[in-house]
Simulated scan of single mutants.
Amino acid sequence: MIFTTVGFVLKGVLVHRSVVEDVRADRDARVKEANDDADQWRRFWESEHAAHETTRQAYAEEIRAALLASTEGAQVAAALLQEIRTRQVEAGE
């Protein structure tokens, strides 16, 4: 019964063929629009992901530079303290 009804619809007996073609065209248009939207959102996500990655890398580089500067400052301070101690020992002799 169901197959017969579907067959009649597809053949244009129960519903005129132009109506079926209009429904199919409408469906195809909605599917195309949904695919286009999905592609657009995918491109937006990819560009946002790339921007986020660039920001993350810049932040990591900034932290790295700050740590290097801090390490250099600590090394200079240690060298100065060593020099001061050396001079104090020499002055005490």
Rank of each mutant, 00 (worst) to 15 (best):
Glu83Pro: 04
Ala77Asp: 07
Glu72Lys: 15
Arg56Glu: 13
Thr5Tyr: 12
Gly7Asn: 14
Val76Thr: 11
Arg24Pro: 00
Gly92Gln: 11
Tyr59Leu: 14
Glu61Phe: 03
Gln82Glu: 12
Val19Lys: 09
Thr86Arg: 13
Gly92Cys: 04
Val13Gly: 07
Ala66Phe: 07
Trp45Asp: 00
Asp26Val: 14
Val15Leu: 08
Ala58His: 09
Leu67Cys: 08
Thr4Pro: 04
Asp36Ile: 03
Val76Met: 08
Glu62Thr: 13
Asp39Phe: 05
Val15Lys: 04
Glu83Phe: 11
Val20Asn: 02
Glu90His: 06
Ala51Thr: 07
Ala25Asn: 09
His52Asp: 05
Ser18Ala: 09
Thr54Trp: 09
Thr54Asp: 10
Lys11Thr: 10
Arg42Thr: 11
Tyr59Pro: 02
Glu48Tyr: 06
Ala34Val: 01
Phe44His: 05
Ser47Glu: 13
Arg27Phe: 08
Gln57Ser: 11
Thr5Met: 14
His49Leu: 12
Arg87Pro: 00
Met1Arg: 15
Thr4Asp: 14
Val89Ser: 12
Ser70Trp: 12
Thr4Trp: 13
Leu10Ala: 13
Gly7Lys: 08
Glu72Ile: 14
Gln75Glu: 13
Phe8Trp: 15
Ala50Leu: 13
His52Val: 05
Ile84Gly: 00
Val15Pro: 01
Glu21Met: 08
Arg17Trp: 06
Leu14Tyr: 00
Ala79Val: 01
Ile84Trp: 04
Val9Cys: 03
Ala34Phe: 01
Glu83Cys: 09
Ala29Pro: 01
Asp28Met: 03
Thr55Glu: 15
Ile2Met: 09
Ser47His: 14
Arg85Glu: 10
Ala69Asp: 13
Ala69Ser: 12
Ile84Met: 05
Glu48Arg: 05
Ala65Gln: 01
